[in-house]
Design a protein around this nucleic acid. Sequence first.
DNA 1: GCGATCAGCT
DNA 2: CACAGCTGATCGC
Length: 493
Amino acid sequence: MATVDCPLPSPADLDDNGFPALPSSPAACSSGFAEDFYRSGTDWSSLRAPPPLGPPRRAPGVKERGGGSAVQSSLFQAWGIEKPRRDGRGAGDSSLVQRSLFQAWGIERPQREGLGAGDSSPSSSLSGSLLARKRRRGSTEEERVAAKKPLACPFYKKIPGTPFTVDAFRYGQVEGCSAYFLSHFHHDHYGGLTKKWCHGPIYCSALTARLVKMCLSVNSDYICPLELDTEYVIEGVTVTLLEANHCPGAALIHFRLSDGKTCLHTGDFRASKTMQSHPLLQRGRVNLVYLDTTYCNPKYKFPPQEDVIDFVVRTTRRYLKKQPKTLIVVGAYSIGKENVYLAISQALEAHIYTDASRRRILYSFGWPDLSKRLCSCNQSSSLHVLPLGSINHENLKKYLETLNGRFLAVLAFRPTGWTFSEATGKHLDLIKPSSNANVTIYGVPYSEHSSFTELRDFVMFLKPQKIIPTVNVGNATSRDKMQAHFREWLKSP
DNA sequence: GCGATCAGCT
DNA sequence: CACAGCTGATCGC
């Protein structure tokens, strides 16, 4: 795995990875992701050499207890921070600190969290332009592509003080990583995992483990399923998976280092009051949080899932009353949104038709209430689950025709987190469907990520010392806005 | 022909 | 806006 050569960032600009530069003087720190990352919750005065890496990679066994790596003897060692040691620069130089950290952890251009969304940083007038991109990517990016080297693993996927990464499979062998955690089975998190995986053990929930094996044909020897709410000691670190309230098998990952430091990686999650009763998530007990900040913006308001499900069921009943020969369609990605169509199925006492590949996945959950409702005959079921991308008027009209007049109309739901407006965020009944002839499509704000207020309440309850956002970090403006929210939320008391 | 990666799209 | 993909093009095997 190549180390990334990060040149010193030039002030008032972005570095080669699209991250904001530190101000030249620490006192002048105005705001920003990088500053907050380096400033908060870490004692930089104690920087020194990194701890030795964990033990040599063993054959991936499970449920190791009490084994493990050396006890960290100091804070900086615990956080795995590397002391800058290049050509005699003073340790007080903040940009040097940044450089060494970027080097220590490796920084990449974020993917989904990334530049694809366009960088509107005010600090660079060229941002967003092809020229700026090219300049930012620089020759190193072109060289990387030419040399077919994998991307560098970004620091926010590495857990300090441990040889662990989370959702980091697209970077090849990550230097210093001897255990790879997978938070849940969505493509943007398991990306890079294939049957050829050979870089180390993969720890995940049992359900996720089944999917990794079944869908990706990853060698079982590498897959280490962990039960929820069970402590495992892995390489000297106590690891516990918690229910993430995202998609089936999704887990929060809690790490407790041998020195007592705790770290929570939320993967993707929808924060809930229930989480606040978990013993590991009590106020002040988590030092560092890697936070799913997908909707960390006050404009994102959506109702509880139960309210949306209630709306979907009511709407379905209304349409069926009007036209009994209506086909109900729910859009869904590979996994997630099951409760939407399960609720319709229960209310209507209808079976759920979906294609064979999705059925295989749904059966693998081992949920009897879901499994017993699945069927393989599209004619005999009035409730179909289709890929979200296929939910449009053109497709549904064609789809209806393939069913040989069995149905006279289609009522379809697109459950997503970003189908919302100020009005419908509060009053679901104000949602206006899109109708075309006998096809009606409702976008419904069914989210499997936290709303802004849920995120706020979760953070204000948890009161961690430090937050590292994992989504929307590719844009300097959005990073700064998120950090401003964090500062507000973490104000004491 | 298959698999992996990536731009573009929703 | 941006979820969590999907489609199609390209490239290497």
